[in-house]
Simulated assay, not measured.
Amino acid sequence: MDIHQLKTFVTVAREGSITRASDLLFLSQPAVSAHIKAMEDTLGILLFDRTPKGMVLTHGGHRLLVKAEDVLCSHQQFLSEATQIKGILSGKLRLGVGGHASSEALGRLLCSLSEEYPEVEVVLKHSSSLDIVSGIKAGNLDAGFYNEAGQPSGALSFIEINRFALYLAAPIEMIDPALPLNWDRLADLPWICPASSTCCGQAAEALFQAHGIRPKRIISIDSEAVTRTLIAGGVGVGLLHESVAREAKAKGDVELICETDNPVRVLFACLSGRTEERLLCEVNSIVSRETSI
Rank of each mutant, 00 (worst) to 15 (best):
E148I: 04
I136L: 03
L124H: 00
P118H: 12
V122R: 02
S127H: 08
K137H: 12
V122W: 04
G144L: 00
A155F: 07
C111H: 15
V122L: 04
G135Q: 01
I161N: 07
Y167W: 10
A138F: 02
A165G: 06
N162A: 11
G154F: 11
K125H: 12
D131I: 01
F145K: 03
S127Y: 04
P118A: 11
I132K: 00
V120C: 02
S129E: 04
Y117T: 09
F158E: 10
D142A: 05
E160W: 07
L110T: 03
E121N: 11
G150C: 14
A169C: 14
N162C: 08
S157M: 11
L110E: 06
L156H: 07
E116R: 15
E119P: 08
G144N: 02
A155T: 06
Y167N: 05
E116Q: 14
N147V: 05
D131A: 09
P118T: 13
E116T: 14
F164R: 06
E119K: 12
S128D: 05
G150I: 12
S157G: 09
P152T: 02
K125T: 10
I161V: 11
Y117V: 08
L130Q: 13
E115N: 13
E121D: 10
V120G: 03
F158G: 04
A169F: 09
E148W: 01
P118W: 11
Y117Q: 13
A149G: 04
I159W: 08
S128W: 00
D131T: 00
S112R: 15
S128T: 10
L130M: 13
L130K: 12
A169H: 11
E121R: 13
L168N: 03
G135I: 00
S114R: 15
S114N: 11
E116G: 08
I161C: 07
C111I: 13
G144I: 01
S114K: 15
D142P: 03
L113F: 02
